[in-house]
Design a protein around this nucleic acid. Structure first.
Lengths: 153, 153
DNA sequence: GCAATTTAGTTGACACGGAAACCATAATAC
DNA sequence: GTATTATGGTTTCCGTGTCAACTAAATTGC
């Protein structure tokens, strides 16, 4: 493989993997009425305990409009609750309900079952190297995309 | 990092990378009025010379409905031409126009310029290992997702 | 030959996610 | 104080991608 092929080939593989993972995750979460992004938001809220939307936006690097809609959906599903912040009446504090907490746990169970399945196919010796390499890529891309991280508009 | 974290963390990173790449590619292709998927379809048609839609569907593992709409768009943009197959009057043969060919070339130029930018940040010594690892992941996932490859419905 | 099935592609409905305009509140300038 | 600007969220518009239903042509069974 020539050097100039490295970039395109790697990108191709990564896009392919990303697509497969997205589809698979969505499929796994389908029974819960969630998709990958929605779950990640729900998960993040539970982890944080109580956050406002803008914090979520910064933490997950998503569009605030998008987060707003997901919040609306999660609330309609009674997985989270919202409250106006006492400090700033514009700000909406998010927290998961008991039901939401249960759903997160169930989703995690499904996901770890699936993880177990494919992780076993990877030689334990290679795992650290894999994480390392993927982490490197993540860093490289993150730094290559000024528009990816901050919205400098 | 504990062993049970390996799966979720790796998935998280890969999803993140996939998202970034998608957004970046879409942004790069925006001036051409295309997105990443549409370009990949156009590119694939050019590579193939003349194909029908179902072949494209199988080759790129996309929804036929989706491909149908992209074809419609590419045709409206005069980047490709369609013709009824002489062998099978249901089948539509696809081929790129001169304009389409030029657009592909321009897109490729833009993409390789971007590639050069980030590839340079990766130690040449590591490149082979990276490709190798990412390839391994691709294989693992591809084999883990019976639904990913064939639509067994 | 003709009904039944399969295959190629299209269409319509719908959820999703991005971009921009917008509203309300808070912070700053003066 | 009031005008201006910044910030937290929402709404709206629109292209995208998926699913299911559909049309038309080809194949198979008989």
């Amino acid at each position: 493989m020539s050097d100039k092929d490295f970039g395109p080939v790697l990108i191709g593989k990564l896009l392919n993997i990303g697509g497969m993972l997205n589809r698979k995750a969505n499929q796994l979460l389908l029974p819960f009425g969630l998709n990958q992004q929605q779950f990640s938001i729900l998960f993040e809220i539970r982890k944080a305990g109580s956050v406002n939307q803008s914090t979520m936006v910064n933490r997950l690097l998503l569009e605030k409009a998008h987060v707003s809609k997901v919040i609306k959906k999660l609330k309609a599903m009674k997985l989270i609750e919202t409250a106006v912040s006492p400090d700033d009446r514009r700000s909406v504090l998010l927290s998961v309900t008991d039901k939401g907490s249960k759903v997160v746990a169930q989703c995690q169970a499904v996901i770890s079952a699936w993880n177990k399945e494919w992780v076993d196919k990877i030689d334990p010796q290679r795992r650290a190297a894999l994480l390392d390499n993927v982490g490197l890529l993540q860093d490289v891309f993150r730094r290559s995309f000024p528009s990816g991280g901050d919205k400098v508009s």
